[in-house]
């Protein structure tokens, strides 16, 4: 295998090096790529969509169709990971572990019995007490991470960022919660069902916006059709349309990241999470 790999690699590399000799010089302002399409984007974005961040404008408007499918890719990855890993345990294990929340006493209970009082929480076999420092600091930081994520989504028009980045940051904030506490805490806050539904809803917001444009009589994804709904002029409508789809992307990405994480890290058994 190693030899094959080496040969293939060298062949591919040789081909690429051979072809790279014909490239326009690196960072040449007059290369075809820089002179053919991009000037239009750079010069007309502000006029046509009123969004200073050209990347956002191109991403969510000119090539919004790509981005819709990009979100779908994430969504389908989420579903794929779910369908691959999630195991619904129908049979409870014989003995379960419970821990008293206030005192930290752990106990083992046979199947069919319930813990003596409501103060007990269910823990898994690999349970270790959460570290105080990490737990506390993360608890304090998570809201800030979240507000930052939302900020990134909301300000995608003016500064780098947008739905995807914001969504990942939001997702990361919840992953931090899972890491610093445990997966059960996360599931308690955000049930699996909610998570899964929100994934779809996020993409649905995106695709639905496009479909709305279609219903309003213009082409799919032509946000200027939204002008009549949002009561603004068509160019501003494009800008707002971009924001709406970015929010959709944000929701979808956040939930999918959490979904994938919880499945991967727990091998599909949420009661035994990382």
């Amino acid at each position: 295998m190693k030899i094959t790999g080496l040969i293939v690699t060298i062949l591919v590399g040789g081909l690429l090096i051979y072809a790279a000799a014909d490239f326009p010089a690196w960072s040449d302002p007059n290369s075809p790529a820089s002179t053919y399409l991009s000037p239009h984007f750079i010069e007309k974005t502000m006029e046509e969509t009123s969004v200073p961040n050209i990347v956002t404008a191109v991403l969510a408007d000119y090539r919004s169709f790509d981005t819709m499918f990009e979100t779908t890719v994430i969504f389908s990855a989420g579903v794929a990971v779910f369908i691959l890993l999630r195991t619904f345990r129908r049979k409870e294990p014989e003995a379960r572990h419970y821990r008293h929340v206030l005192t930290g006493v752990t106990m083992r209970i046979k199947e069919g019995k319930l813990p003596p009082s409501d103060d007990f929480e269910r823990i898994d076999t690999l349970w270790t007490p959460p570290d105080l420092i990490i737990k506390t600091v993360c608890r304090l930081l998570i809201p800030f991470i979240q507000i930052f994520g939302l900020y990134v989504i909301a300000h995608g028009h003016h500064s780098p960022g947008g739905g995807f980045q914001g969504g990942v940051i939001l997702g990361a904030s919840i992953i931090v919660l899972a890491i610093s506490h445990n997966l059960r805490t996360v599931v308690k806050r955000m049930s699996e069902k909610l998570d899964a539904v929100l994934c779809a809803v996020g993409v649905l917001i995106y695709a639905g916006t496009g479909a709305l444009c279609l219903l309003l009589g213009l082409n799919f994804m032509d946000y200027s059709a939204l002008a009549s709904v949002l009561f603004v002029d068509p160019i501003m409508a494009r800008s707002h349309g971009i924001l709406i789809v970015e929010i959709g992307v944000g929701i979808a990405v956040m939930c999918t990241m959490v979904w994938i994480y919880s499945n991967v890290s727990s091998r599909g058994r949420y009661e035994q999470g990382l």
Partner: peptide, 26 residues
């Protein structure tokens, strides 16, 4: 490429590594 960098930062640091660690853990 600031947007790409932002994405790479959030994905690479925040998510990919965590996924990897999760998978290695499992």
């Amino acid at each position: 490429a600031v947007d790409v960098a932002f994405t790479e930062a959030s994905v690479g640091a925040g998510v990919s590594t965590v996924f990897f660690v999760g998978a290695v853990f499992r």
